[in-house]
Nucleic acid binder design. Structure first.
Lengths: 187, 187
DNA sequence: CAGAAAACCTAGCGGTGCTAGAATCGTGGG
DNA sequence: CCCACGATTCTAGCACCGCTAGGTTTTCTG
């Protein structure tokens, strides 16, 4: 059936359209400005159409989040390769991503609470992100569990990112703070 | 004027009543269950009364947050004294607080976005919390800036707390993760 | 081309934070 | 003692939210 294939393709395209619209709206005005009405208006369909694609607003945010993980994985991987597997490069890339894509980072870590994480069912892109941290942490493991060290690094970066973003930490000391983390964490 | 004094006192009492009610409701059912209507019903006044005390729901959460900082400061100080200024004791106390008072911790760090932080206008209790971290970090500063190290410790703890709470990190490795943080941070 | 099925929209539900304006209350002066 | 005033409090309602039932339109199929 050619027509059915086209139908499915168009449906998939529209789904992507919704995700992109939600993301752009969130990046432009924050997630609190992303309402189902505005979203529907933006994709030029009525509200109920959203619900034929997603279970609800939270599911839309989750979809944006996995897109975010894909991008973050690419962003970090590029930084790792560029810096020759250096821890500093990857950490800076992580924080840079959080700083420049706050709405996306929010969807990934603060909003989409239903998204599976520390399980095999977690989105592949998320595992990719973690693997990047794992790779760069390996040289400094020095007998300690690599996975645990990667989780710790992740926690520290996440803490830095969120506290800095919320104005909790003075931004002008950002570089020195990161340098201190790196020096303390290695060995 | 005695009557006016009484008025003011009663007003203050009612304000505290609102804060306590909001906190209890949040701790029992989460912040999304704290609506101005339910809150008003709980303190046995009508909705607009809330707005004669606070600028809005966010201001109420901020008030709960400063109460949280006061408690956290006490909690951590007690742990520090009990453990003889040991870093491990204070870190465990921080994470314990976040784990046992999730709604309070949320108000302090995730919800109340308008609350001033890294400025002198920040609530005193917040500075007290930070000072506790400062005190316990001093022995391991080893030439590095103590304030910066305290901020870094805070970030790591905050990251651990939030990621663990959101199911992002497997809970059964919590102890080992904390031990690793301590060993790496005190080099 | 008729009828079935899929797609889509209108209208509405119960809820939210917040507020204008009416009603009620305690109080001080005549 | 009573009345008028000012502070206090409530009723009712605004515009918005996420979400959905039910009917209309469009599209495909036999």
């Amino acid at each position: 059936m050619t027509t059915q294939a086209r139908r499915l393709r168009e449906r998939a395209e529209r789904e992507q359209l919704i995700i992109t619209a939600a993301r752009e709206l969130a990046e432009a005005e924050g997630w609190e400005a992303v309402t189902t009405r505005r979203l529907a208006e933006r994709v030029e369909y009525s509200q109920p159409v959203l619900y034929s694609h997603f279970a609800g607003k939270e599911a839309i945010m989750a979809a944006v989040a996995v897109e975010g993980f894909t991008e973050m994985a690419a962003h970090i991987r590029a930084a790792r390769e560029r810096s020759g597997d250096r821890l500093a490069g990857v950490c800076a890339a992580y924080l840079d991503f959080a700083e420049r894509r706050p709405a996306l980072y929010d969807a990934m870590f603060n909003r989409a609470s239903t998204l599976p994480f520390a399980t095999p069912e977690a989105p592949g892109a998320l595992h990719d992100c973690f693997d990047e941290l794992l790779a760069v942490v390996r040289p400094i493991a020095a007998g300690d569990d690599e996975g645990l060290l990667a989780e710790l690094l992740w926690s520290a970066l996440h803490g830095l990112a969120t506290l800095t973003r919320g104005g909790r930490l003075p931004r002008e000391l950002h570089e020195r703070r990161l340098a201190l983390l790196l020096s303390r964490l290695s060995r």
